[in-house]
Amino acid sequence: MSSQNQKNEISRRSFLQTSAKFAAAGIYLGVFGMPELFGNVVVDKKDVQIPDVKLNNGVKMPILGFGTYGLSGEVCQQSVAEAISAGYRLLDTAKVYGNEEAVGRGIKQSGIDRKKLFVTSKLWVDDAGYENAKKGFEETLRKLQLEYLDLYLIHRPRGDVKGSWKAMEELYKAGKIKAIGISNFDPVQLDALLSYAEVKPVINQIETHAYFQQTNDFKVLKQHNIQMQAWAPFAEGRNGLFTNEILTKIAQKHGKTTAQVSLRWHYQRGIVAIPRSSQKVHIIENLDIFDFKLDSADIKEIEKLDLNKTQFPEWT
């Protein structure tokens, strides 16, 4: 974890410790004689039924999943296994994350029936083009120790996108991928792909959170019947999202955390979100969003937070 991620995680933990309403969410902190941060956590684990969304090819996927960006090695493996145990069925990885093997080991460690999972990975820029894309896909399958993927995305609109898409269409038609999609495409780049695609992408995975609400992309994707999916639904804690005054006020109103409010906001917009954490308490907390509802006043307050710009300039 980078120093920036560590700071973000600390900000979130600090909020969880000081929130008077946090106990109402079913997680209690043992603050007396705590041997380490979250060392005495007791979690009221619930059986969670995550709703599905139906993609434009008829395939169903969970609307809430587990992201793995920034996780590696044993930490990644254990986090994936714990996420599956907690109730997650959608798992998101990518070649460029360097953790596909660890994700595969986590799946095996969980002991779950493969058919119950929805596994996503992504084609990186280095593997762009028809032949390279097919080789890159086979490498991903090998690392994950899987026979097929539920969803495969072009990670970024770079290089020979047309050749990559043709290869992915063939893999889709051959049954090696249940659904194909894109990531980080803007509306102009999406239109270019649609001009030659024989198979319409089912998803566009883009940066989406309270500070970058992507209202135009949201409308465009709706018009094309392409599912919107959010990476970094918490903005990785950047710009103080976990301690934001408006989100904190809404969280206290509902007896929830800012993280849960953020995920509920995505859910009510119909956006698939893939939060990531290596902390078991957060993995479980992020699932606990289906027993409350943001009202219109809450939504209007969150809309005010939109800065309409990326919080990850290093990715642009």
Rank of each mutant, 00 (worst) to 15 (best):
M1P: 10
M1S: 11
S3Y: 10
Q4C: 05
N5V: 05
Q6I: 12
K7W: 08
N8R: 11
E9R: 15
K21T: 13
F22G: 01
Y28D: 11
Y28M: 15
V31D: 08
E36L: 12
F38M: 15
F38G: 03
F38S: 04
V42G: 01
D44A: 11
D47M: 03
Q49G: 07
I50V: 15
V53E: 13
K54E: 14
N56Q: 07
G58Q: 14
K60H: 11
M61L: 05
P62H: 08
I63G: 07
L64K: 04
G65D: 03
G70M: 03
G70S: 12
G73K: 15
Q77L: 07
Q77W: 01
Q77H: 01
V80S: 10
A81S: 09
A86K: 15
G87A: 04
Y88T: 05
R89H: 11
Y97N: 14
A102G: 02
G104H: 04
G111E: 12
V119N: 05
T120F: 06
T120V: 12
L123E: 02
W124F: 04
V125N: 14
D126M: 11
Y130F: 14
N132M: 02
G136E: 02
E138T: 00
E138D: 08
R142E: 08
L146S: 13
Y148G: 08
L153M: 03
P157V: 06
R158S: 14
G159K: 12
D160P: 00
K166C: 03
A167M: 09
Y172N: 13
G175E: 03
I182L: 15
S183T: 10
F185G: 09
Q189S: 11
A192Y: 12
A192C: 01
L194P: 02
K200F: 10
P201H: 06
A210V: 07
A210I: 06
A210E: 05
Q214F: 01
T215V: 13
T215S: 08
K222T: 10
H224F: 13
M228C: 00
Q229I: 02
P233K: 09
P233R: 03
N239L: 12
N239K: 14
L241C: 11
T248P: 02
Q252P: 00
G255H: 04
K256C: 01
A259H: 06
Q260G: 14
L263C: 04
W265F: 12
Y267R: 09
Q268D: 03
R269L: 12
G270Y: 09
K280V: 10
K280D: 05
I284L: 09
L287F: 02
D288H: 13
D291Y: 03
D291T: 13
D291L: 04
K300S: 08
E303F: 04
K304Y: 01
L305D: 00
D306Y: 09
K309N: 06
P313D: 09
P313W: 07
